[in-house]
């Protein structure tokens, strides 16, 4: 869970992993970068174990976005509750 304090009103953001399974080719880069959030299935494709990325792993998550050869891996920044 990620939250960001902005001035007086607290704005919370959550960073959510999204994988498009129709495009993913199972290169596995994302799983290798984010073992905290993802695991391999039996065919070497990623399974999302934990959808929300914490601050600590955010940089790695964006690195995975950059390196995913199919652009199947995304991080969505959404307004939290």
């Amino acid at each position: 869970m990620v939250s960001k304090e902005l001035g007086r009103g607290a704005l919370r953001f959550e960073h959510q992993l999204v994988i498009d399974p129709t495009v993913c080719d199972g290169y596995g880069y994302c799983v290798e970068l984010l073992p905290s959030n993802l695991i391999f299935d039996d065919w070497g494709y990623p399974i999302i174990k934990e959808r929300y990325v914490d601050d600590e792993h955010l940089e790695l998550a964006y690195r995975a976005v950059k390196l995913c050869p199919k652009l199947a891996f995304r991080v969505n920044k959404i307004r939290g509750r």
Binding site: G26, Y27, G28, Y29, E32, L33, G44, A64, L67, P69
Partner: peptide, 14 residues
């Protein structure tokens, strides 16, 4: 999708 030893493949992408 071959691995060289235990090196994560993402290293080669980097």
């Amino acid at each position: 999708k071959v691995k060289v030893g235990k090196i994560p493949r993402v290293y080669f992408a980097e």
